[in-house]
Computed example of a mutant assay.
Amino acid sequence: MDERSLIDARDKLLETAVGFFSADPAVVGVFLGGSLAAGSADAWSDIDLRVVVTSDRHSHYVDQRREIPKQWSGFLFNEWVPGAQHCVSHFRPFGKIDIFYYDAAALTPSPWYRLPIRILHDPEGFVADLVERSAELSFTVSADDLDFSISKGLAAGGPE
């Protein structure tokens, strides 16, 4: 499969997902993270989608996280963890979408929202406001966290 076809298929999947979620008034925001938001994606990059839902509908979306992507063209299979609030779904020809469902009432500013984000649906400005309130926050990493991350990287091995 050529790279242009992969990118076109990924764009179509993203368009389908955003159209699906933005049709529900309980979805107050949809945004991208990862390489697509950062502008560093290649043809093999996945979609890191975040869906912000009102509290009264959040459990519905979490409960349906494995069923929703099955409705979309090209669905192959899901990866999921019981009790998680996300699902990773695979699509033809070689697409993957990670969808995380956030309860709008539980979201608070975080340095994570300073990372590249591309807002795709934000009718009331909820996501934009969250990003703005996160602008001054910084990451703090303890020495133990740093040691743990380094040891995980070393255990995984590096380039040969």
Results as ranks from 00 to 15, higher is better:
4 R>V: 15
5 S>L: 12
11 D>G: 11
12 K>R: 15
13 L>M: 09
13 L>S: 02
15 E>P: 09
17 A>I: 02
18 V>R: 04
21 F>M: 07
21 F>S: 05
22 S>F: 01
23 A>L: 08
23 A>C: 10
24 D>V: 05
26 A>W: 01
26 A>Y: 00
27 V>E: 02
28 V>R: 01
31 F>I: 09
33 G>R: 07
33 G>H: 04
35 S>L: 15
35 S>H: 08
35 S>M: 10
39 G>L: 10
40 S>I: 09
44 W>I: 07
45 S>D: 03
48 D>M: 04
50 R>D: 12
54 T>P: 06
55 S>G: 15
57 R>E: 05
57 R>A: 15
61 Y>T: 01
61 Y>I: 03
63 D>W: 07
64 Q>R: 12
65 R>C: 04
66 R>D: 09
68 I>D: 04
68 I>Y: 12
68 I>K: 04
70 K>G: 07
71 Q>T: 15
72 W>A: 10
74 G>L: 14
77 F>R: 13
82 P>Q: 08
85 Q>G: 08
85 Q>F: 14
86 H>S: 10
89 S>F: 00
91 F>P: 00
92 R>I: 03
92 R>Q: 14
94 F>K: 14
94 F>T: 13
98 D>V: 08
100 F>N: 02
102 Y>A: 03
104 A>R: 02
107 L>H: 05
107 L>N: 03
108 T>P: 12
108 T>F: 05
109 P>I: 06
109 P>V: 11
114 R>K: 13
115 L>Q: 11
115 L>A: 13
116 P>L: 02
118 R>N: 12
125 G>M: 03
125 G>D: 06
127 V>H: 02
128 A>L: 09
129 D>N: 12
129 D>V: 06
133 R>P: 02
133 R>W: 02
134 S>T: 08
138 S>Q: 13
139 F>D: 03
142 S>L: 03
143 A>S: 05
145 D>E: 11
146 L>S: 04
146 L>Y: 09
151 S>F: 06
153 G>C: 14
155 A>M: 09
158 G>V: 11
